[in-house]
Design a protein around this nucleic acid. Structure first.
Length: 580
RNA sequence: GCACCCGUAGCUCAGCUGGAUAGAGCGCUGCCCUCCGAAGGCAGAGGUCUCGCGUUCGAAUCGCGACGGGUGCACCA
């Protein structure tokens, strides 16, 4: 149930009634009509802009439309008052019972309350993390992982069929580098002195991989040239790194539905077929790219390449798919990969990248547009940098200085719940400050704590009631006489609960899970406010020893709050806590 | 140089499909526990929404142009 949607339906029906009666022209576009919470609660419970949106089309004064519409709306039993305000807003006041009627809805549906049919089962592929399999995940990947996972959960909640996917870049030259690095660690495991030149990965995490290789192949590869061991070590290294990355993701609670190997595209003819398809559309040609503007590389010279005409789809430059020596660029398998996703039949694609891949957005959109004939929308969400702090001091990451912060470091220090929530307290395209001390702070300065605290407080109140021998099961609360509620703070809380389905659809529509974190903070705030009212007004306490009926009603309210908090935290992947 | 992202209170940031007197937290000032978790709440002060022009009944929001910050820019992925 979504009260905002219900009332919007009423507004639209009323407008049609006016049309039928000849009070409004018949050819009006209602698509911009909204019903939303007013900015100021003093204005009422809901506001609609219908009169202003339609005034021009109908060639009528907004206030005249508003007046006519108001007369119809006020006749509805749910609405107690309609005011025409300002330039033509209609401010609606609802019978408080309408808001309170949300409580049994919440209790009945549980954490499924607010699930939306908006996705109508459409399939969405969310590709995220997709870190190169050359080392463990670091903080930057962590943000992408949390964001992508929460977005996927959000879309699932909004009625989409979601696939979480990780593409393994196991085909590029960075895998050769990995193989050489593993080889050095392998020699080291055999007791040889090794040095790590520029261009190999010096990380300690490869030491056990070298040992494992030694255990597996013994001294078979010692003193052997690269071409003897390269293929084997590429696979061995990639497998080891993916095991590491899967373990990192598991620490965060992220479960991928599918890992897609880029290498699996090679040798199958898929890349060739895909490029042929583009060629058939006249989008492939042999040519030269312009020299880069700004900093000119020392060794730049024009080279003939095979190019994809991405400028036809809004890119700044056509992009090379094949190098001058005939081998593929990194872009070619990516084209085939996205072709594969299109062929799998997803209705929508979403990619989550770090902000440093921003330059990649246009060409990928170009590819998907070209390959799907503009039928499959691709949204690319960029996650901005995470700035680490310790005690308010910036914490610089440096591979050389050994201050490289991995996902595991973060989880070990603050845990997955805190990590996930904090990562979602900023919009994805805004930089995020992550202070190891502040995120663990047990005070209202810390939004994670603040939301958890509200949940724990509700649990505490309910324990209190249970200790007193009162049944506060949902079945009993469902029958509570809600006429016992009516205080402004109680109604405010119920209204906030009523906003949940609407907020959720907006968050899903915009692909912005951070909105859920902000909503939960607001909901927790309303709860704390009401809870504290009980400090000075004993009759506002939830647990009324001498009035079981009132207690049931009040606890039905806060139990509903707990359910929505739980649902919201669930989407973010955070576990609510009964006690702290 | 070009592209993308960002610019909102002293600080960190929300702000919905363009909507009414622009919000929250921190910090600052003053209040509130014999009693459900004060790990909290209430109230106050604090704004040229970077600037200009335009579209509109109406602009923080849309368009154009400045300015400032970040990121990225040919056979590396």
């Amino acid at each position: 149930m979504n009260l905002f949607a219900d009332i919007k339906t009423l507004v639209l029906d009323s407008l049609q009634t006016l049309q039928a009666a000849g009070s409004l022209p018949s050819d009006l576009d209602f698509s911009n009509v909204t019903v939303e919470p007013p900015r100021d609660a003093m204005h009422g419970d809901m506001a609609t802009n219908a009169a202003m949106v339609l005034a021009k089309q109908a060639r009528m004064k907004p206030r005249d439309i508003a007046q006519a519409l108001a007369e119809l709306l006020v006749a509805d039993a749910r609405i107690t008052a309609v005011d025409v305000a300002g330039p033509g807003f209609l401010n609606l006041r609802l019978d408080p019972a309408q808001w309170l009627a949300i409580l049994p809805e919440v209790l009945r549906a549980g954490t499924d309350f607010g699930r939306s049919p908006m996705g109508s089962g459409k399939s969405v592929n969310v590709e995220f993390v997709s870190a190169n399999p050359t080392g463990p995940l670091h903080v930057g990947h962590t943000r992408g992982a949390v964001f992508g996972d929460a977005l996927a959960s959000l879309l699932d909640f909004a009625g989409y069929a979601v696939t979480r996917e990780y593409v393994i870049n196991d085909g590029g030259s960075q895998i050769d580098t990995l193989a050489r690095s593993v080889y050095l660690r392998y020699l080291e495991a055999h007791g040889q002195e090794v040095s790590f030149p520029e261009g190999v990965y010096p990380g300690d995490y490869l030491i056990p991989v070298g040992k494992a290789l030694k255990d597996k192949v013994g001294d078979k590869y010692i003193d052997q040239p690269e071409d003897v061991w390269m293929d084997d070590l590429r696979n061995f290294g990639t497998d080891a790194m993916m095991a590491l990355i899967r373990a990192d993701l598991a620490l965060l609670g992220v479960k991928m539905d599918r890992f897609f190997s880029e290498k699996s595209l090679y040798g199958t003819g898929k890349i060739e077929a895909c490029l042929q398809a583009l060629n058939d559309k006249g989008l492939i040609y042999e040519g030269y790219t312009d020299p880069p503007k700004g900093k000119m590389p020392d060794d730049w010279k024009p080279r003939k390449q095979t190019l994809f005409k991405s400028t036809e789809f809004g890119d700044d430059q056509d992009r090379p798919v094949q190098k001058s020596d005939g081998s593929w660029t990194y872009f070619a398998p990516d084209i085939a990969y996205h072709h594969d996703k299109v062929l799998r039949g997803y209705d929508e694609l979403i990619n989550v990248f770090g902000a440093d891949h921003g330059g990649y957005v246009k060409r990928l959109k170009a590819i998907v547009a070209a390959l799907s004939g503009n039928t499959v929308p691709l949204d690319i969400k960029l996650t901005q940098l995470v700035r680490l702090f310790k005690n308010g001091q910036p914490f610089k990451m440096s591979k050389r200085a050994g201050t490289f912060v991995t996902l595991k470091d973060v989880i070990d220090l603050v845990g997955p719940d805190v990590t996930r929530f904090v990562m979602l307290t900023r919009k994805n395209d805004a930089p995020l400050d992550f202070d190891f001390d502040k995120v663990l702070d047990q005070s209202k300065d810390n939004p994670v704590f603040y939301v958890q605290y509200a949940y724990a407080r509700i649990s505490s109140v309910m324990r209190k009631a249970i200790e007193a021998g009162v049944d506060v099961s949902d079945a009993v609360l469902l029958d509570a006489d809600l006429a016992n509620l009516g205080h402004d703070a109680e109604l405010a809380l119920a209204k906030k609960l009523g906003e949940w389905p609407r907020m959720l659809e907006l968050a899903a529509k915009h692909h912005e899970p951070h909105r859920i974190a902000f909503y939960l903070f607001d909901l927790a705030s309303e709860y704390h406010s009401l809870h504290n009212l009980g400090k000075t007004s004993p009759d506002q306490r939830f647990w009324q020893a001498d009035n079981v009926a009132a207690s049931h009603a009040k606890i039905a309210l806060i139990r509903s709050v707990a359910v929505v908090l739980s649902a919201g935290l669930g989407i973010l992947g955070v576990t609510p806590m009964d006690k702290m």
